[in-house]
Design a protein around this nucleic acid. Structure first.
Lengths: 198, 198
DNA sequence: TCCGTTTTATGATTAAAATCATAAAATGGA
DNA sequence: TCCATTTTATGATTTTAATCATAAAACGGA
C-alpha cells in the first residue's frame, strides 16, 4: 500500500467501478498501477467451459496486478469489481518514477508480493495434494489471518459464499457444502443460520 | 540474482550440498538469503502420505526462499538439492543492509518475485480447472520459456522426468505418462527414445 | 411487497484420475 | 560389468469428487 500523498504527488487519478465491472482483462498488456480505495476486487480466470478460478480477493488499501506490470507480460487473469469500488490508478511511467525516487516503497512492494507468493505456495500444495475438507479449512484459516473477517461471540465469521470458497480451492460448490457440513460435524467450525464461523 | 561482488562485500559464504541434502525445512524460521552458484534445487511439500508437490525448481544464479525471509514467517516448503549444489548464503541482517544500501537490487528482487508469482498464478488456474493434458502442456511451455531447456533438431528437450512433471502439476506419474502419450498422438510433442521434445 | 436471482442444500449417477499390480528398459554406482 | 534403483510403460480396478437433477431458503431490486 502506497500513501495517498505520495500517489497524488505522482499524478494518480481516481476511478469508480460498478459491481461486476471488468477492471482489467486477461491477455491485455499492463499499463497502470491499481490500488483500491474502497470496495472489493477479485482476480480470476475462466476456463473453456466457463468454470472460474479465483486467484485472489483484494480489499481497501491493497494493490493488484503488479506482477505483469513489472515483467511487461500479459495479464494472466481478469480483475473484476465484486461490489462498487473506487480505485487509484497510476500510469506505469509515473509509478516507476515513484519507485525509483522512493526506495522505501520498494520494500513495501516486496513485502506485498512476498505475502501473495506465500499464500499461493500454501494453496498450490493444498489443491494438489489434499482432500476437500483440508483445502477448505486451510483457506478459511488463511482468510482469518489475512482477510478482514470479523470476530464475534460465535468466532470468526467467514465472509465467503460456498461458491467463492469453491472457486478459491478448485472445488465445486456442492463439494464445498458437503465439506463444510462434515467439518461442522467434526467440530472444526460452526454453521449458524447458514453462516460459517470458526 | 545479486552480483558476486556485491554479495562478497556483505560477507556472503559458500556452502556445498550433496544430492538429496535438505537445505532448509518447512516450518523453520528463515535466517538467510540463498542464491545458487551451481547445481539444482527444488522447493517442495510432502503431505501426510508422503505425496510430494514441487513448488518450483531453481538453477544457477537463482535465489529461493525469500518470501518467508521478508515476512518473518515459517517456510511453507522444504528446499532440497536435486544434484550436488553450491550455494551463496548471506545472513538476514547483512542481506537487509545490502538491500537498503543498494536500491537497484530491490527492483531485481521485485522482478524475480513477480516472475514467480506469475508462474504460480498460471499453474494454480491450470491445476484447478484443466485436464491432465492441458496441465502438462502448460508446464512444458512454461519450462521452455523459463527453465534452461536446450533446443536441438528435434525441438526443445524437456528436461523433466514424468515423476517431476507429476509433482509440479499435481498429477500421478501414470497419468502424466498417459497424457504425454496422448499429446504425442495429437502431434503436440515428440517422444524420441523416451525423451520428450516440443 | 413481489418476483427474479443467488445461495444453500441433498440425493443419485457418472466420469476421470488415482490406485494397484506388474514389468521392461535405462541408468548409475560399486 | 554387474546389479540395485529409477524411469517409463500398460492394463485392471477403485475411489472420489464432478455432474446432474431438483428444490427450499434467502436476498435484493423494482
Amino acid at each position: 500500500m502506497i500513501t495517498v500523498e505520495l500517489l497524488e504527488k505522482y499524478g494518480v487519478i481516481k476511478k469508480s467501478f460498478d459491481k461486476n465491472d471488468i477492471i482489467l482483462e486477461e491477455g491485455n498488456l499492463p499499463s497502470h498501477y491499481y490500488q483500491i480505495i474502497s470496495g472489493e476486487v477479485k482476480m480470476s480466470n475462466y476456463n473453456d467451459d466457463g468454470r472460474e478460478f479465483i486467484q485472489g480477493i483484494f480489499y481497501n488499501g491493497q494493490s493488484f496486478g503488479e506482477p505483469p506490470l513489472f515483467l511487461n507480460q500479459k495479464y494472466p487473469a481478469n480483475a473484476i469489481a465484486v461490489e462498487n469500488t473506487e480505485i487509484f490508478i497510476l500510469p506505469k511511467g509515473n509509478f516507476m518514477k515513484l519507485l525509483e525516487e522512493n526506495p522505501k516503497v520498494s520494500i513495501k512492494i516486496i513485502e506485498n508480493l512476498a505475502q501473495r507468493l506465500y499464500y499461493k505456495s500454501v494453496m498450490a500444495a493444498e489443491i494438489s495434494t489434499h482432500e476437500p475438507e483440508h483445502r477448505v479449512l486451510k483457506l478459511i484459516d488463511h482468510g482469518i489471518a489475512y482477510f478482514n473477517f470479523q470476530k464475534d461471540k460465535n468466532g470468526y465469521l467467514i465472509n465467503f459464499t460456498r461458491q467463492q470458497i469453491g472457486d478459491l480451492t478448485g472445488l465445486r460448490v456442492e463439494t464445498v457444502i458437503r465439506a463444510i457440513k462434515a467439518l461442522e460435524k467434526k467440530g472444526e467450525l460452526k454453521i449458524i443460520n447458514r453462516k460459517v464461523y470458526r
